[in-house]
């Protein structure tokens, strides 16, 4: 299997979809620059520059999808979806229900997400909890190139709206595009195993709603995704040295959630730690707890999430996000519980 960067894998998937199906188009801010390879291959009709008008162009994606296209709409950073929420919340997500199942909006909303690079709290959010809470929307958060390519193919082929979130530390061209990587003296803790890896050829779909087990262990279950998964895997090395073997589940898809993989592991270990870069309240971590409770699994539970507005200063930001230290502490505390 060839090695590819996360970004190259996503682009390969999109290129394949666009080459095979002329209904697949992509548009968003700066795409002729960001997706220049696709632009050169497919031209300005199918790779479109938009004005900075997320409300209009995301909603236009809904209309285009309703009229038979398969648009991949880029919201540069998921934080910006705030100004475009109507098209997703009140149009795309509800169309299938509202039309009595007769009409659907097969669109992908693609956006960068996540922090760890000192960009402040309006550009570093994860927000998958808010997005996954809407009925009718799938939300995927891949953690490695193979999943990124496979989930992008699944997202494009889905008949319903899918939010595809690429973490800026995994699709790490973002750090370069945002100017951050072009200086000496600034370093980013990019998880190497997520930013580059083997990708099966030809590209294959990775089904949505299927988690994977990233590490086997019997003492504690860690549920995570995106960059959080890599932080958790890093923490596992320290935990193992201290005699704690963690099983790590990569959710890959927030909604629909793979309840079975989570509950099976929880039954085995009896202890679940959620590592989630999104906000702690009313989101993914609470959903995992609810899934366990509803399944009748009695398990110890803890979570390491983002608890407040994400600070700008790097040292404060590091403390606010689910860092390795916090994961080790929480996992140890949970593992030592009777």
């Amino acid at each position: 299997m060839p090695r590819m960067s996360f970004a190259a894998a996503v682009e390969a998937a999109l290129e394949k979809a666009m080459a095979e199906d002329e209904r697949v188009i992509t548009f968003g801010e700066d795409v002729t620059m960001l997706r220049r390879n696709l632009f050169v291959r497919f031209g300005p009709g199918r790779v479109r520059q938009t004005p900075i008008s997320e409300a209009a162009f995301l909603y236009a994606g809904v209309g285009a999808a309703m009229a038979g296209m398969r648009p991949v709409v880029e919201i540069m950073m998921i934080d910006f979806i705030a100004v475009a929420f109507d098209g997703l919340l009140n149009a795309a997500s509800k169309l299938k229900a509202f039309s009595g199942g007769k009409w659907n909006a097969p669109m992908v909303i693609r956006a960068g997400c996540g922090g760890w690079y000192g960009d402040g709290g309006q550009h570093e959010q994860s927000l998958w909890g808010i997005l996954a809470g809407m009925p009718g929307v799938s939300v995927v958060v891949p953690s490695n190139p193979a999943d990124a390519a496979g989930l992008m193919l699944s997202a494009i082929n889905s008949d319903d709206p899918v939010v595809f979130l690429e973490h800026k530390f995994l699709a790490d061209y973002w750090l370069d595009y945002l100017g951050g990587a072009s200086r000496d003296g600034v370093s980013f803790d990019v998880p190497a195993a997520g930013a580059e890896g083997e990708v099966p050829q030809p590209l294959r779909e990775v089904p949505m709603g299927a988690a994977s087990v990233a590490r086997r262990g019997g003492d504690i279950t860690i549920v995570s995704l995106g960059v959080g998964l890599h932080r958790a895997l890093e923490a596992c090395e320290t935990l193992a040295a201290r005699g704690i073997q963690a099983e790590v589940i990569d959710l890959r898809t927030v909604a629909p959630m793979d309840r079975q993989t989570v509950t099976e592991s929880a039954r085995k270990t009896g202890k679940v730690l959620v590592v989630d870069e999104d906000y702690v309240g009313f989101g993914l971590s609470g959903e995992v707890a609810a899934v366990l409770a509803e399944s009748g699994v009695s398990a110890g539970f803890a979570r390491v999430c983002t608890e407040d507005v994400i600070p700008f200063a790097r040292h404060l930001e590091e403390r606010a996000l689910p860092n390795v230290r916090r994961i080790i502490d929480a996992a140890e505390g949970l593992a030592r519980m009777a």
């Binding site: 209009a56 236009a60 209309g63 309703m66 009229a67 038979g68 296209m69």
Partner: peptide
């Protein structure tokens, strides 16, 4: 209006 823009794009 934005929905119509999308319909228009598909057309």
């Amino acid at each position: 209006a934005p929905l119509a823009a999308g319909f228009g794009l598909a057309a």
